[in-house]
């Protein structure tokens, strides 16, 4: 059993305890996962305070909805990650709607290199790495900018200096090819 699988089982067990009203188990999950989740949210939000907010709210939501967690349908770590990612994306999109520029603008600076860095850091044995490397560079970069940094189609178009329709086509064909390769 790999370290990740062990960690998954550990977290699933804790989440099942949370589901029965055990607050200490949520504390143990927090101790195990909060740092990782803040880092994931921070890739998307850039701002430390907003990333922490996304994670804090995520744990509160996890407490409330824990009775519906089912380990047969995905791990507790994946569940928490999904909650925090969605929360971070919403904070991001709402910030843009409200034209909260300032700090938000900073994310278009040096940050996009971390999308490539995330790809490079994937384990060589990971099928995702293999399948992403099979894609043309523009398709791969578009997918990474969207997933890792939470970029919209429009932001990716600006970043890669390509027409919006082209970017949409890259991503569409990219994710289809990616899933065919992964399956």
């Amino acid at each position: 059993m790999s370290a990740v699988e062990r960690s998954d089982q550990f977290c699933d067990g804790l989440m099942l305890r949370v589901a029965s009203g055990d607050r200490e188990a949520l504390g143990d999950l927090f101790a195990s996962e909060a740092g990782r989740l803040i880092a994931i949210a921070r890739r998307i939000l850039r701002r430390k305070d907003l990333a922490e907010e996304a994670v804090q709210e995520g744990f509160i939501a996890a407490w409330k909805h824990a009775p519906r967690f089912d380990p047969a349908r995905g791990s507790a770590r994946a569940w928490l990650t999904t909650i925090v990612r969605n929360r971070a994306l919403n904070i991001l999109r709402d910030g843009q709607r409200l034209r909260l520029t300032g700090d938000d603008m900073a994310r278009h600076g040096e940050s996009d290199s971390s999308a490539d860095a995330a790809f490079e850091a994937l384990d060589e044995a990971d099928a995702l790495k293999h399948c992403l490397s099979q894609l043309d560079e523009p398709r791969r970069r578009s997918i990474l900018l969207a997933y890792v940094l939470g970029y919209t189609h429009g932001e990716i178009a600006a970043k890669l200096n390509a027409p919006l329709g082209t970017v949409k086509a890259w991503i569409r064909r990219g994710v289809i090819a990616l899933q065919e390769c992964l399956s």
């Binding site: 927090f30 990782r36 921070r42 430390k48 994946a78 994937l122 384990d123 890792v148 899933q179």
Partner: peptide
């Protein structure tokens, strides 16, 4: 579900951040 699970490898490459001391207390 399958795609989300695969893509989560990218999340696992993030280097864990420092957790603020008072955060668990607030939760």
């Amino acid at each position: 579900r399958r795609l989300a699970e695969r893509m989560s490898s990218l999340d696992d490459t993030a280097k864990p951040a420092d957790v603020p001391a008072g955060m668990w207390g607030e939760i």
